[in-house]
Design a binder for these strands. Structure first.
Lengths: 343, 343
DNA sequence: ATAAGTTGCGTATACGTATGCAAACTATGC
DNA sequence: GCATAGTTTGCATACGTATACGCAACTTAT
């Protein structure tokens, strides 16, 4: 620590000080078994004294892998500086932590679904694999996913698992979550349960939640009423508009299952503005368990997606794939969080 | 697009096809003026046909800069998988977007304040500059910041601006925000206003908000009552505990200014649990305007930090610094959002 | 027509690391 | 005392790009 070298130290500097060649330094620091303990110890000590760090650019260039994962986050409608979907934001935290644990760096990038990210990242060699996160019209994905698979790019996607989509997909048990939420509403004595959120295959995760809703109704012998369904993506306005529509049309309902918490929160607000009590007049359940869900009044009953497990699963699966192992898509369990909005 | 090359194309491949040398390809693609238009066009077309991407590792190694910023996020208490502070999470979105606009990649990393990040990132050459984000006991920072400055690392920090800390610090006008919030509470006729959040220099931003609080009281000729202050960092439990303490001690108060929205939300919850009405019995104001702030019942009056502007300012300032320009610390304006919790 | 300046490109090389291969050295066996 | 196997190290080179320098051709000025 006497003087700081004018230049950043390289493996050559260490080699010189240790009286060995540069390749020996490289081997020693990377843990190669073919270097003697004495030499390794000497090299490690000198490296520490000089505050030496491997130049990751040089290392990646030579070894052709970067120990870095890229997280591509999609937003379909052009973001006008508005807030990011809080669910994905939370997931990001989990992924970041998991990457740190696995000694991978994480590169983050926002993308438009319509962009050409599928060719941008696969060749620049900045990342060894891709994590795809986001929402939007699902059909746009397919072509690009196929493209990625063709190019041999390693990636995992958060979405509806166990489908025959190209590549590897992990996701929560959306169907099971929908089933559990609606069963719960039925147990609370509700009979006319509305669903807000698209049931189309353009949003497969919402569709799966909707299927859970339908099957729960069927189980209980409650007829499905299409008039109690409103379309929309994940946003508060969707919930507000849906409730306004129901009330305008004079629909009778005593519960709402919203395909996401944002929708549910919007619906709650609109109902309360219209003088309805929750859960007295209308019970509500959402999906996601975003941070705000427990802060509403009353707190929102919702299906919790285990973000910690999700981040772990995504990162673990991707790294396995990079390492050439066979990885299976799988569905992660969810948990119903019963709160004040439904009891 | 006829056949896909077995190997990733390099600048040599393009050079061969274009009948020029490799350096000419490099110059053409980087926009050097010393290559003729005809040659450049030919090269660009071939590059496009081959789906060529510059290898960023090689490029960074040679040019010694990576066009990448690293975002270091700190959490002081070891994260037990709990949620990340939503304020910083939102900021992250803003920073990410701004990086994309400026054609920089963003590398994200979680750190413990106590770690040795200050030497880890400065030499690995993966990033050209650092953005420091987070909270925790401020004193731990100083030594490391000084270290960074000494090593010539470029960085910006989100914190209390206009201080004499080492390096460059940007942040909101915490003092002005506190002043505005408490002035507003006073205008609503409140006289006994509590403050929740530490007033110590270990958390300079909270301290500045507290100073705004005190000065607003002084302006209005209201005596400062130390019994109406409770210590704590940004968490819901802080707010809950503080309210419990006030009520236990039989303190009389008709308003609360919380140093953060999380604290304010905890306080609201505790007050409502104790049968107090908001804003009838107690008016509440927070700080940050996290997404959940507008979803509480009643919606929370708070001081909005302009995250979009903050992200822009941080990224812009850092890039300027990297480019060798002189950059000044500065305070960003905040905006009081008056909502139901205070009127 | 020649000197000086300009344009456009090629030559050579450097960035710092990782790895195949061969060489040296040590240990073991007969 | 020599051959064989095992261990540890050095040599040479490759990864793909960017840039200092030089050289030719071509313009403009005298």
């Amino acid at each position: 620590m006497g003087r700081l070298p004018s230049r950043k130290p390289t493996s050559f500097d260490i080699a010189y000080l240790a009286g060995v060649s540069q390749p020996t330094v490289s081997r020693a620091l990377r843990g190669s078994p073919s270097v003697s303990k004495a030499t390794r110890d000497r090299i490690e000590q000198i490296a520490q004294e000089l505050n030496y760090r491997v130049d990751k650019n040089a290392s990646s260039l030579r070894s052709q892998h970067s120990k870095t994962l890229a997280l591509l986050f999609f937003e379909d409608p052009a973001p006008d500086g508005s807030h990011i979907n809080p669910f994905f934001l939370s997931m990001l935290g989990s992924i970041t932590r998991q990457c740190a644990l696995r000694c991978y760096d994480l590169l983050i990038s926002f993308q438009q679904l319509s962009g050409n990210w599928h060719i941008d990242y696969q060749d620049s060699h900045k990342a060894d694999g891709l994590i795809l996160l986001g929402y939007g019209d699902y059909e746009q994905y397919r072509e690009r996913l196929t493209n990625l698979v063709d190019q041999g790019t390693d990636f995992v996607r958060w979405g509806l698992p166990l489908t025959d989509e190209p590549g590897l997909t992990l996701g929560s048990d959306n169907y099971g979550g929908g089933l559990a939420a609606v069963r719960h509403l039925i147990e609370q004595g509700r009979k006319r349960i509305a669903f807000i959120g698209t049931a189309s295959s353009h949003a497969p995760e919402f569709e799966a939640r909707w299927k859970g809703y339908r099957d729960a109704l069927a189980e209980a012998g409650i007829a499905y009423d299409p008039a109690l369904q409103a379309e929309g993506f994940s946003a508060e306005t969707t919930g507000e508009n849906a409730i306004a529509q129901f009330l305008d049309q004079g629909r009778k309902f005593d519960a709402v299952f919203a395909a996401s918490d944002l929708i549910a929160i919007g619906a709650m607000r609109a109902l309360q503005a219209a003088g309805k009590t929750i859960p007295g007049d209308v019970a509500i359940a959402g999906f996601d368990d975003i941070p705000a869900a427990s802060m509403t009044a009353p707190p929102l009953t919702t299906v919790m997606q285990d973000l910690k497990a999700a981040g772990e699963a995504l990162v673990t699966a991707l790294i396995r794939k990079i390492d050439g192992e066979e990885v299976q898509s799988c569905a992660l369990p969810v948990k119903l969080m019963v709160r004040g909005s439904s009891r």
